[in-house]
Every structure is written in C-alpha cells, then in structure tokens.
C-alpha cells in the first residue's frame, strides 16, 4: 500500500489523477474508523492534511472561504463571527477529534449526520473542487447527493467551501442522547439574513441527506414581514406563528427509526429546535439592535 504526502495542491492533484486508488485522508477521523472496522481497504492513502491551499481561511468582502483541511479547533478559534459554524464545530466529537477532523472530511464522508453540513446548507454554501484539469464550484446540494454519496469525481479533491456571510444571527443545535461524542439524532441550523429578508433552515440526521425546509423558510420570512420584524428588530412575532414555523420545519424532515432514535422523536426534535432557533435569532437581533441604539 502506498502513502503519498504531497506538499502542494498541484502535486496532490497529479497524484490523485495517477493513483485513483489512493483515498484522500485529512484528519482520518472518519476514514480510519472505516479501515479499523474492515469496511474499507483503500489501495493507498493520499494525505491532504499538509496542503497549504487547504489550510487557509480567507475573507473577501462578504465571502468567507474555508479551506477543506482546516480542523474544527481552528474554526472555533478563527471564525467566531460565523456563529452557527463554530457552534457546530464545538459539538463535534471530543477535543482530540476537533483537533484532527476537518470540514473537508465531513463533506467527503457526506453523512446526513455530519454536523458541519446543515450549517453549510443554511449558509447556502458552495463546495470548491479541483482536479489536475481544472476547478469547479458546486452548490452544496449538488455536492451532497444522498447518504454518504457525493459528487466528488475520482480525480478530484475538495479544496474549500465558501459562502456569503449573512446579515443576521444564526445557530446550530444538535440533539443526542449523550452530552459529548455522540452522533446527532437530529441537527438543525438556522440563519437569518436581514439584507435578503430570508430565513434559512437546514436539518441533519433526519433524512437521507441534509434537508432544507423551503416551506417553513418562506413562511418564516413572511411572518417576520407581517410583524414588521425585518425593518424593526424589536417587533414581536406572534406565538402561533412561531409554533407554525416549527410545525413546517418538522414536516420537512424525512426521518427513520434506527438504533439511535425513533422517527417520531426526530420529527418532534426538529419542531422544538426550529421554534427555539427562530426565537433565539429574533432575540439576538433585537439585543444587537438595542445595543446599537444605546
């Protein structure tokens, strides 16, 4: 078995083209588990963890570009403004896993339980892919195709994800029966975007892949509109509308029963989390406006 450790993206892509049997490995926190369990026997490894191009965090205007090889621990330290993403990063595994694990790996695995993924979906993020012959950028939903199925071509590497930082608060919540080191039973990320007057909600672990809740999003944007909350953050959204929002998000879930939880509970959790997340976002916006006013 061969182990490649290129020092530049260019070199990595050439190896990737020449040795499609070598699996890319970043933190190894998903891949090595598969190998240890004997579920995978890669013909080789291509270590991407030292590629400087993948370890960058860049901001250009409102655009945030997060290198695929940036571990969660760095996200928490270096991207505090991306609240939902840092909250998701904090819920991943344990300190050891957060030191090694990367968002690129989370995308590469493409599990519906990947905690960074609902955030990327709520951010309307794009995935930047490169091969020796060029680069392409896919919206997140064109990259995540199904349970552990992605659009990554055999000669490609994930280079980065990028998104436009939203004008408004956001959050990520994860329900698990244990307080750490737990695979989500349900995950939810909500992002308010005041400039676009949009509410974006994405769900993890409650469907074959990451799901958005378009009806709920439209409803949410509408009720904020009706309440005048987009222009006046102090305006209150009626309780029944908050409840209806939770209901619509729950309806967007497509959960199943498995050893970790029941479909009924997963749907229920989506309802509760959605309502809470919207309430927090409105509270945070209100608090920010009041602070700005004082």
């Amino acid at each position: 078995m061969q182990f490649f450790r290129p020092s530049s993206l260019r070199e990595a892509l050439e190896i990737r083209a020449a040795h499609p049997e070598a699996m890319p490995i970043a933190g190894g926190t998903d891949l090595m588990v598969e190998v240890n369990f004997g579920r995978r026997r890669p013909g080789g490894f291509l270590d991407v963890s030292r590629l400087p191009e993948l370890r960058e965090i860049r901001r250009e205007g409102r655009t945030v570009r997060l290198g695929a090889g940036v571990p969660y621990a760095r996200i928490i330290r270096e991207l505090p403004g991306q609240v939902a993403l840092t909250q998701a990063a904090r819920t991943v595994g344990s300190p050891q896993i957060r030191t090694r694990g990367t968002v690129g790996g989370n995308l590469g695995t493409g599990s519906p339980a990947g905690d960074a993924l609902p955030v990327l979906a709520a951010y309307d993020a794009r995935v930047v892919l490169a091969s020796a012959t060029g680069t392409r950028t896919l919206p997140w939903h064109d990259f995540l195709l199904g349970p552990k199925r992605t659009a990554l071509a055999p000669d490609e590497l994930i280079v980065a994800t990028e998104w436009e930082a939203a004008d408004g608060p956001g959050s990520f919540s994860k329900v698990g029966t244990r307080n750490a080191m737990v695979i989500a039973i349900a995950g939810l990320s909500l992002q308010l975007d005041g400039a676009a007057r949009r509410v974006r909600v994405a769900l993890g672990s409650v469907g074959p892949t990451i799901l958005r809740a378009p009806e709920a999003e439209a409803f949410g944007a509408g009720v904020l509109d009706e309440a005048g909350a987009w222009s006046d953050p102090r305006a209150r959204v009626p309780e029944d509308a908050m409840a209806r929002f939770g209901e619509l998000v729950a309806e967007a879930a497509r959960p199943i029963d498995d050893v970790r939880g029941t479909a009924a509970y997963r749907r229920h959790a989506c309802r509760v989390l959605a309502r809470r997340a919207l309430a927090w976002a409105l509270d945070d916006r209100r608090a920010a406006a009041m602070e700005a006013a004082s």
């Binding site: 904090r90 819920t91 959050s171 990520f172 919540s173 698990g176 307080n179 989500a184 809470r276």
Partner: peptide, 11 residues
Amino acid sequence: PGGAGNVGRGE
C-alpha cells in the same frame, strides 16, 4: 440538559 449540543437557553 443537552447543553453541549446547544439545544436550549434554559427553556
């Protein structure tokens, strides 16, 4: 409860 997953603010 569930605090490490950021699921509540004490509701």
